[in-house]
Nucleic acid binder design. Structure first.
Lengths: 136, 136
DNA sequence: CGCAATCTCGTTATGAGATAACGTCACACA
DNA sequence: TGTGTGACGTTATCTCATAACGAGATTGCG
């Protein structure tokens, strides 16, 4: 059984609220945007958001997008706990697509192996224009 | 001839100073660290550094590491102007290695193509422990 | 020449992103 | 009972990045 999804039940109130904000959103959100959205729920300080985000990322429910300083709820198809995920980020509409590709992951592992590099975490972010935005 | 290196001659004074700081450094530097190093050269404000960095990145002489909010001088072997570069970042010693791998680049282009995603820029950053640091 | 366009630069102020440090509270469990 | 742990709230502070304004220098052209 994946230990990736079933944590959802164990979320604390703050974690649930932050997770909710991210799930409702069409695209990535910055910590401060989340904070603003949750002021009515009693959020007052950035740390409340960051603490929740840290845990959600740890659980694998949320990904951090380094090139945007923002966060997205995990939507990647077949949510298999893979830790080598590529993100395609549309610079026009802001939507983010998650891609889990085995060849890609293997290639990266191979390259790390060649260099005797003990790989802990990979960040792959592709910037461009998505199909929908190209059409319009 | 590559249009990647020969720009160096055209650098302005500020750009040269920033480039020098990055070239001297063993690892990546944040903009504010560069600022501090260049105070004796008349630098007083972050913008002086950021403006130079913007140009240097544009010229391909410097890379930005998204996951560190820092910058490195381009050292990648065979400096061929490739825009799909992977970085291996050692979390212990801070050193950064650039890797230019054709298979990896092709795979990413293929994935983007499959999704009809117009790829503009790729960010690949691997975090872990380098060979040297594992030994010690 | 005269004058616009463009580029770099310097400065001040401010906006965004992230964390340190401190104390409180609730709960589990020996 | 009391001790440890983890989430929480608050204030202050740190780091990263850019907006907005104006001054010089350079180029190119009528």
């Amino acid at each position: 059984m994946s230990d990736h999804v079933h944590e959802a039940a164990d979320l604390t109130k703050n974690q649930s609220l932050v997770m909710g904000a991210l799930t409702r959103s069409k695209g990535p959100l910055s910590a401060y945007t989340i904070l603003d959205q949750l002021r009515d729920n009693g959020f007052r300080a950035p740390l409340q958001v960051y603490r929740a985000l840290d845990k959600l990322v740890e659980f694998g429910l949320v990904h951090r997008l380094e090139s945007l300083n923002a966060f997205v709820a995990c939507r990647h198809p077949g949510c298999d706990g893979d830790d080598t995920i590529a993100f395609m980020i549309c610079e026009r509409c802001g939507q983010v697509n998650e891609i889990s590709d085995n060849d890609l992951a293997l290639r990266l592992k191979h390259l790390a192996g060649e260099a005797s590099f003990a790989l802990k975490k990979t960040t792959i972010e592709l910037r461009g224009i998505c199909r929908t935005c190209q059409a319009s």
